[in-house]
Amino acid sequence: MTGTGFIDPRPVYARATEQAAALIKTVRPEDLTRPTPCTEFDVRGLLSHVVGGTRRIAVVGEGGDGLAVDPSADGVGDDGWAAAYDEVRARVLTAWESDARMVTPVRVPWGEVPGHAALSGYVMEIVTHTWDLAEAIGVAAGELDAELAEFALATARAVLPDSRPRETETPFGARREAPPAAGPYERLAAWLGREPLSRA
Rank of each mutant, 00 (worst) to 15 (best):
V88K: 02
C38A: 13
G121S: 14
P184V: 09
V106P: 13
G138A: 09
T104D: 13
E167G: 00
L153Y: 04
P161M: 10
F6V: 08
A21Q: 13
A73L: 09
A178T: 11
Y185P: 06
S48M: 06
A118K: 07
V103N: 10
R194L: 09
A146L: 06
A156K: 05
R89F: 02
R175F: 02
R166V: 14
Y13S: 02
D145R: 05
R34Q: 09
E169N: 09
G138K: 10
L47T: 03
T94G: 13
A182W: 00
T94F: 01
A141H: 14
S198Q: 10
F172W: 14
T104E: 15
P161C: 09
T168S: 06
E112G: 03
R44K: 12
H129L: 10
W191T: 08
A156T: 07
P180N: 04
S48F: 01
C38S: 11
A84D: 08
H129Y: 07
V139T: 15
T128F: 12
G63Q: 10
E112D: 11
A154I: 01
D8Q: 12
E30D: 15
P165Y: 00
R166H: 08
G75S: 00
S98M: 01
A140V: 11
G45M: 04
A149E: 08
G53V: 01
A73T: 07
R187T: 10
R56N: 04
A90N: 10
A100H: 12
V159I: 13
E177M: 04
G142V: 13
A174P: 14
P11W: 09
I137M: 04
T33I: 07
D31W: 03
A154R: 11
A178D: 09
E169H: 04
D31A: 08
E62I: 02
L144C: 11
A73S: 13
G193S: 08
E40V: 08
P180T: 05
L188K: 06
G183F: 05
D79Y: 01
L133A: 04
S198A: 15
E112A: 11
A146V: 08
R101Q: 14
W131D: 07
A90G: 13
